[in-house]
Design a protein around this nucleic acid. Structure first.
Lengths: 358, 358
DNA sequence: ATGAAGCACTAAAACGTTTTAGATGGAGTG
DNA sequence: CACTCCATCTAAAACGTTTTAGTGCTTCAT
């Protein structure tokens, strides 16, 4: 009876007897509601053996005083860090859409209990070291790898240890882990098709690095599409799409001299496209007249500069969001199957666009 | 006697009686060395009342078993999070050097006890909300703000609360807090001087947003330099360097029609330069012949595309490293004065470069 | 009446660290 | 001999959370 009276007294007039600067804890709620700390904790985590009425009261009180669980306490007790680590090669001195990827992963994590910490590593350094260190010190609950090779040893290591992770880019074990990727085969097919539709026949390929799966995908896509459309691919020697611009420039110039029949260029990255187009024009050819160019790009950079260039867009923000979802699912293991996704990039013909807008 | 004997016995033969998968803790070291946990802790933190010999023994043991302090434990006890939060507007669908900034801040934090967590916020949202949330939940020891306005309310708030922070970009309170910035006044002066040296007289300014201090700096620099070099600035109306490309394009076209005497363009960002040069060429002018362009850029993007464009380079990696240092100093308050730095960007004349290399 | 079962709650321990307030023992001092 | 002093070490508490193993109490079947 008196117990019920006390409840009646404290419940409506929630005055909190805590000094203003103090961060509220479970103990605070316990003091206010008169319940044990354990009860408060279990009420907030919706345990089955707490009455509905108690849960309501506790939650109300928690909302009222603005309770936020202390992560350090949780972390110490549960061993969970609430951290997702993005393992990325140190960013080179070049513009990229990596920031958008980071930003969108972090956004996707917003509202969950997880934070994104960025862990760069020197590209020439032992790939395994940062990963081992991260796992060894237990500084994250999961990893996102953003540049994976087909047989990436890190992926093998993570799978073996059963450590939650997701990759940006598939591997040969793609069916066994969470990943997100763009459909690079389709990029290649769309590119070759678009160039063929314009009557081009001899396409210079500024190839992607072949040690990564997306590179192999593009390779396959191009080969197949060239057969279908009767195109002849000329592979750029001694440079890939991520070579330094001078290397690409030299290689493109040499290729154009050697194979004057080239009337199209396909590039696996926007930056290499910029260089390649420039080199072609320096060799006296005019884009749109003497040749067409098709490039993969994540943002409207190239088209802004050369409307004549054909580009295939990738939705980087979508990739980030998907990776965030995937990695959380990997941590919580909601489902047996890892979350995977492939986004089909889209192609807009800039000639059509400029025609309709002007 | 027996106590000393035990020391003699345990010290040399360091066998660690811990199950292999277990992460070593202070308790582990305590067990191995026979010292109390408190002693081990104080030895590792180099407390004055621990003997030199004991410190040596403890450190040796710690190294041997690969002890790494449990951050959650430290965090709970000390209230320090060991987290630096980078508060950044969500990255738009555009290539940028932001990733390099993030990467280099994180690199600068490597080796310290701090991690970088990325906290994006919607640009249209209340600026204070994410900051308040961060401080309210105590989820970081310090913040880095990467786009500050001259009278940024966040900076005022942080100074008032005495919360450690550093900014990328100065404010009107620049003498009171840690910051790093590029010398944008100098960018403007160098640009105007370079254009004047080429005999140009009427320069179209694709102005930076004036609500940020770097914009005001550029404005001042241009005004002063134009006076000195006898140049006439024509300010682009209805668009700034971070407007959408279509807006910039329209505005540039209109300006060129209205002021045909324009023979130079100065742009506050590489992306706006790409658009502006394109628009000028669509109006029938040829870069290098009819006009010159000067742009601020962090990476060799623009010059790769249009060698004729003059650009001023910024060392983004240096900024990141400096911010990391500054924020750590702000946390540890090693010195009374906040760490500040201004980097002078450098200018290379691409005409000289192409002349000497080809 | 007795025991079992179930409901709603709680006390206490544990995670790993740092810090406070001593404890211990030997050396120096009166 | 009693004392202070000092150097070195330690026990215990605390940070906030979750979880284990209960405790009371009621109800219900026997």
């Amino acid at each position: 009876m008196t117990g019920e009276d006390e409840h009646e007294k404290t419940a409506p007039v929630i005055t909190h007897p805590l000094s203003p600067g103090e961060r509220p804890t479970l103990k605070t709620i316990s003091r206010i509601t008169g319940l044990a700390i354990a009860t408060v904790s279990r009420a907030l985590s919706d345990a089955p053996d707490i009455s509905v009425e108690t849960k309501r009261r506790v939650r109300e009180c928690a909302d009222h005083i603005g309770y936020q669980p202390n992560r350090a306490g949780q972390r110490l007790r549960t061993g969970k860090t609430h951290v997702v680590s993005l393992l990325m090669p140190t960013e080179p001195d070049i513009m990229s859409h990596t920031a958008q990827l980071i930003s969108s992963i972090a956004e996707g994590l917003q509202g969950t209990a997880y934070h994104l910490v960025v862990t760069p590593y020197a590209p020439n350094e032992d790939l395994m070291r940062p990963l081992r260190h991260m796992i060894g010190t237990g500084s994250a609950d999961a990893v996102i790898l953003n540049q994976t090779m087909p047989e990436d040893p890190r992926v093998a290591y993570l799978m073996e240890r059963g450590f939650p992770f997701a990759t940006h880019g598939r591997t040969i074990w793609a069916d066994q882990h969470a990943w997100f990727d763009f459909d690079n085969r389709r990029f290649a097919e769309l590119g070759i098709a678009a160039l063929a539709r314009r009557g081009r026949r001899h396409v210079l390929i500024v190839a992607p690095p072949l040690d990564q799966l997306y590179g192999q995908d593009i390779l396959e896509g191009i080969t197949k599409a060239c057969q279908i459309h009767g195109m002849t691919p000329i592979w750029l020697k001694s440079a890939t799409s991520d070579s330094a611009s001078k290397v690409i420039e030299t290689a493109v110039s040499a290729a154009l001299k050697e194979s004057p029949e080239i009337d199209a260029i396909l590039c696996a990255s926007p930056m290499s496209a910029i260089t390649a187009i420039d080199a072609a024009e320096r060799s006296g050819r005019v884009i749109g007249r003497d040749f067409d160019a098709f490039a993969k790009e994540a943002t409207p950079l190239l088209t802004r500069f050369r409307r004549e260039a054909l580009t295939l867009h990738e939705d980087v923000a979508k990739a980030g969001k998907a990776l965030a979802r995937a990695v959380i699912q990997a941590i919580e293991q909601l489902q047996a199957a890892p979350l995977q996704g492939m986004d089909v990039p889209y192609y807009e013909d800039p000639l059509d666009l400029s025609r309709s807008q002007s």
